[in-house]
Design a binder for these strands. Structure first.
Lengths: 126, 126
DNA sequence: CTGAATCCTCCGCGATACTG
DNA sequence: CAGTATCGCGGAGGATTCAG
């Protein structure tokens, strides 16, 4: 994941491109709202409003913005029903489910160390 | 990880506290710079300037800010040598190393799906 | 070299209103 | 109900300076 040195040699150009792409993807994905959305959808099929109701504190705008980004990267699938009022459902794609596994691990980590971290904070804050 | 409903019942207060604490920790940790720092330190011992040189694009301020936050949460250990000019080394703590394992998984995920994601993007962008 | 503090800019993000 | 667009503000974060 660590960015390779820029050598200036032409034969590295594709490597550098792949690397900056990786960084780009990482930046997209390594943010609070994106990960919370993925963790919330999980293996379910949720509508926009259901997502907003479940993800505590997310704004309308942040939700659409992040859903759009996740859809663009192919992590969530968006199914639109041509009815009125509109109905749109979101699910995780295969890559999204794979990512979810790692997010699950992060959540487990949080619960495993929450006490430990709380203590560290208190010590630090004196 | 999903936030529990607010019921208003007093006996839930400690659960709600633990939950908001988990969200707080998650918000601290689920951000690009924090994860990149953890991934960069890895199992090494690095000085401030070495970190800044290795993490492409991070500013002086962002690095200190995130290091301070990671130290507060007990994820990195900071060792100060009383010499002049100052020398400060950073390493991952046990909890930091545990978190790193999950970040590694995220990086592996990136490399595994990078092609897939790149295709999805092109399709989305038409 | 590390890190805190100040200033200043820009844009992330919320609020709101409007379409279909 | 879902989504886009606009506006406006507060704060994130860069550049710079100072201190130890």
């Amino acid at each position: 994941m660590v960015t390779k040195q820029f050598t200036g040699l032409p034969e590295d150009s594709d490597l550098r491109r792949a690397d900056s792409l990786a960084r780009e993807i990482f930046s997209d994905v390594a943010n609070k709202w994106a990960l919370l959305i993925i963790e919330t959808v999980a293996d379910r099929t949720l509508r926009f409003s259901e997502l907003r109701d479940e993800i505590d504190g997310i704004s309308h705008k942040m939700l659409t913005q992040n859903l759009r980004m996740l859809e663009r990267n192919g992590l969530v699938e968006r199914r639109v029903y041509p009815v009125v009022p509109p109905k749109v459902e979101y699910t995780l794609s295969e890559s999204g489910r794979a990512l979810r596994a790692t997010v699950d691990a992060m959540c487990e980590w949080t619960h495993l160390y929450i006490r430990h971290i709380d203590d560290a904070r208190r010590r630090f804050d004196e």
